[in-house]
Simulated scan of single mutants.
Amino acid sequence: MSITIDKDPDSAVLPERIKRFPFPFSSDSYRYSANVEPAHKTVPTEAGAWGAGLIDIDENYLQELAERDGILARDPSRMQVLPHMGPAVWDAITALLPVMAEENPSIMSFHREGNTCRWRNTLQDLDVEFTVGDDDSLPMGPLRFLGSQIQDDIVLLDIREDTMWLDAGLVTFAADWSFGFDVGMNFLEIHGPVPRVKEERIVSRAHQFLMRLQPGEQYRRTNWTMTVGQRLDTSTETYPEWGPDRATIADDPDLPNKLHLRVEVQHLIRLPHTGVLLFLVRSYLLPLADIARVPAWRETFGHVLAELPEDMAEYKGIIRYRKAASDWLLAR
Rank of each mutant, 00 (worst) to 15 (best):
L277Y: 09
K198I: 13
D136Y: 10
F23T: 00
Q230A: 13
E264L: 04
I71D: 00
G53V: 10
V203D: 06
D290H: 11
E16S: 15
S235N: 08
R322W: 00
P295Q: 06
L166C: 10
N223D: 10
H273W: 12
I269Y: 07
L261N: 00
M1C: 12
S109L: 06
V281R: 09
Y61L: 06
M1Q: 13
E307T: 15
D152C: 11
M164P: 02
R68Y: 02
T122W: 07
D127Q: 07
H191S: 02
M108H: 13
W90G: 00
R322V: 00
D254Y: 06
P195A: 09
Q149C: 07
S26M: 13
S204E: 15
D152V: 03
N60G: 10
K323A: 12
H191F: 03
D69P: 03
R144L: 07
V89E: 02
R246S: 08
V281P: 03
R320I: 01
V263T: 06
T45D: 04
V13F: 15
G243N: 06
V171F: 03
L188V: 11
N35Y: 09
R205S: 14
L261K: 00
L308N: 01
Y32F: 15
I190W: 02
N121R: 09
P195K: 07
L156Q: 08
V89F: 03
I319M: 09
Y32S: 14
A88L: 01
V228F: 02
A247C: 08
V228M: 04
L157Y: 08
R74C: 10
T45C: 05
A66V: 11
E189R: 15
Q63N: 14
P87I: 03
R298S: 10
M100V: 13
V263W: 00
L138I: 12
V128G: 04
R74L: 14
D182F: 09
S77Q: 09
R231I: 11
P38L: 05
P287W: 02
D252L: 04
L210D: 06
L62T: 15
